[in-house]
Design a protein around this nucleic acid. Structure first.
Length: 275
DNA sequence: AACGGAACCTGAAAGC
DNA sequence: TGCTTTCAGGTTCCGT
């Protein structure tokens, strides 16, 4: 699934594929992926112009066009941008394409949860995002304050894009394991040291994933036959890499969490002094 | 305001 | 073998 690292790779790829090249043609074959304007309007704003900038915030991409129009792209659960030759055949699940000279950049998205949004200014989905762990870093104090208001579990809290932008099920699972935090612990119950560890773990996990996946043709872990590069995610029943205890799978907020009951045990609460 | 759950989708894998 | 069910999860929406 595309989470922050996968979207970051998409951003880097789009930068190199689109840079300085004029868009000759735009085809949107499934209008379901389009929001905020018609497919024709997107084509109209793009054709003949160039993309001057590609930014990423959380799981969102923002393409700035000559003239200032903005094209936002969210990959949903199965979206990806790939580069092909213009003459290459239409790909399975291809939903849109930009042709630039002999190259065509294709948007492929089998489940169509992703979308393209044309706008003249930043959209709410972009502006309401929390800090981006990769570009902004994770400030433990700021994170602690955000978590202090949330009664839900820390795992569910991390999936809230207003808390941190770009964390999905995989990165949340991996970071909690790295930081040795019980995913079931209420977000507001985390102590300073735990939040600090979590902030560090978050960035480390994202950077490891990035280093592992960087390349022009990204593979998602759910792709048929794809290996699972993650130490914890999707590995229920396998031994914890740290303590060999069998990893356990639970469901939180309708989503799977894998964790180690041994080394992600809830820390004993410090004794309260009677007053 | 915060929360839980359904809905949106398709394709692969597992179950029968 | 071939059909049915389950699962995957980012986000939005809706009801509480």
């Amino acid at each position: 699934m595309p989470e922050l690292p996968e979207v970051e790779i998409a951003a880097r790829n789009l930068r190199s594929w689109l840079r300085k090249k004029t868009i000759d043609a735009v085809t949107i074959s499934r209008t379901r992926v389009v929001r905020g304007g018609s497919a024709a309007k997107i084509a109209e704003s793009l054709v003949g112009g160039r993309v001057t900038k590609v930014d990423r915030r959380g799981k969102w991409l923002r393409l700035t066009l000559e003239g200032g129009a903005l094209l936002f792209s969210h990959l949903g659960m199965s979206g990806r941008w790939v580069k092909r030759a213009k003459v290459d055949e239409i790909l399975r699940s291809e939903r849109a394409r930009l042709d630039l000279g002999s190259v065509s950049v294709r948007y492929v998205d089998p489940r169509m949860f992703g979308r393209l949004v044309l706008a003249s200014a930043d959209i709410d989905e972009w502006t309401s995002l929390g800090p981006d762990p990769l570009t902004d870093g994770v400030d433990a104090k700021v994170l602690e304050k955000a978590l202090s208001k949330i009664r839900r579990s820390i795992k569910e809290a991390l999936l809230d894009q207003r808390v941190l932008a770009g964390i999905g099920n995989i990165q949340a699972t991996e970071a909690l394991w790295r930081a040795r935090i019980d995913p079931r612990a209420p977000a507001q119950s985390l102590e300073g040291a735990q939040v600090k560890a979590l902030a560090k773990a978050m960035v480390a996990s994202i950077e490891d994933t990035l280093a592992h996946e960087e390349g022009p043709e990204i593979t998602y872990v759910e792709d048929a036959g794809a290996p699972n590069p993650f130490p914890i995610y999707g590995r229920e029943g396998e031994p914890c890499p740290r303590c060999r205890t069998a990893l356990v799978r639970i469901v939180q907020g309708g989503r799977a969490t894998v964790f180690c009951t041994e080394c992600q045990a809830r820390q004993a609460r410090p004794k309260r002094r009677a007053t």
